[in-house]
Design a protein around this nucleic acid. Sequence first.
DNA 1: CTCAATGTTCAATGAATGTTGAACAAACGC
DNA 2: GCGTTTGTTCAACATTCATTGAACATTGAG
Lengths: 123, 123
Amino acid sequence: MTEYLDHPAADDIALPAVLTALGDETRLAIIAILARNGEKAMTCGQFLQLGSKTAISYHVAKLREAGVIHVRPDGTRRLLTLRRDDLDRRFPGFLDSVVTSATAMQMPEALDFARTAETAGGM
Amino acid sequence: MTEYLDHPAADDIALPAVLTALGDETRLAIIAILARNGEKAMTCGQFLQLGSKTAISYHVAKLREAGVIHVRPDGTRRLLTLRRDDLDRRFPGFLDSVVTSATAMQMPEALDFARTAETAGGM
DNA sequence: CTCAATGTTCAATGAATGTTGAACAAACGC
DNA sequence: GCGTTTGTTCAACATTCATTGAACATTGAG
């Protein structure tokens, strides 16, 4: 049983909720980094550069409740993944356009961090 | 001189601001109806079905400040148009995906209204 | 000028948002 | 066991948000 946390069903993902979830710099950075990381899951700890432990926990919960990411407990960690397929099916083209634009945005710190994370992660 | 109201320059349109602006049911309905209306401008009054006069004025200002729509005074009215080209250039594919998903959404009232407006408008 | 139509501005209000720090919980390593 | 790591929960707080109603401004019609 790896389903501890509440996630909306794919069909219940609502566009306004997704837009609201992504309408925050921190959360947009999170999904941009997640997308950039491919299919590999990431942990909350890898985003501490974007804010405090509490803040990241808060934003991750928002993204999860909106249906943007999936969060799976793994020991003391949480493994975060983008819900690409669900989002693509429900809002075709949306995620790609957002991720592309968000990545193209100048977020040097976030990108530096992503590079650091993938190097240091050693995964 | 038809430029009375403040609009962000195309290059200053920010993704988080746009996402936040669209992350509201009323504003999402406004742009869905605008998009459905083609290139034709619409007035605030045509959205009164979505809320009070004051509320529409508020939401229209939000959309304008975020760079999503252009507002041009015309007598006592305001003519609203989507900033399609600017948005497409800045966030390729984004507007279309949002409009498509928002239109596909079940917003029967809004669509009924749009139909009423275009029939009654007599334009 | 007078009146009606279309929107804006203002103050007030209640709700939601995002942040912080302290305390807590759960899993892992020794 | 004990301590460390990882993340959550809680209360508090300041800020922003969305709505309302009243008043106002501007344009157009007569």
